[in-house]
């Protein structure tokens, strides 16, 4: 007897990530990489032509983009540290302390760098 099966396959379209807030957050997390490229370009300019870099970073548009890149890096840090426990198969108490240590280091190093920058300004 011929089969009556006719499986229906639902196509995945390019807008799949709009369906759920979780997917949108994921795209936002991955989207922070675009700003990483932007910061790399700015640093490349600094390396190749320090004078152009000095005038570039004073441009209002560049300041806005750098601010956005800063916020993106904060989001990236937050999401990345939240995912760190997944990579390590360790007891939960140790993982919790590890993430706290990572945050402590990040905040500590940031304060030191900002203090040094303020002192040399």
């Amino acid at each position: 007897m011929a089969t009556k099966r006719k499986p229906y396959i639902r196509e995945v379209n390019a807008g799949w990530w709009k369906k759920l807030p979780f997917y949108r957050d994921y795209m936002l997390r991955e989207g922070t990489s675009v700003f990483a490229v932007w910061v790399s370009v700015v640093l490349l300019v600094a390396l190749l032509s320090p004078d152009t870099f000095m005038s570039l970073v004073k441009n209002p548009l560049v300041i806005i983009l750098n601010l956005a890149a800063f916020l993106a890096s904060l989001l990236h840090t937050k999401t990345w540290y939240a995912l760190v426990p997944k990579i390590l198969n360790l007891p939960e108490a140790i993982l919790k302390r590890l993430v706290q240590t990572l945050w402590g280091l990040t905040i500590g190093v940031s304060v030191v760098v900002l203090a040094l920058a303020a002192a040399s300004y």
Binding site: F22, Y26, L83, K86, I87, N89
Partner: peptide, 22 residues
């Protein structure tokens, strides 16, 4: 690509996203 929604929906809290990253 570590979307991570698998671990969110798992009814037995298996955390497949963690297993895959490991």
């Amino acid at each position: 690509t570590l979307v991570g929604y698998c671990s969110e929906v798992c009814p037995k809290h298996v955390d497949p996203a963690a297993a895959l990253q490991q």
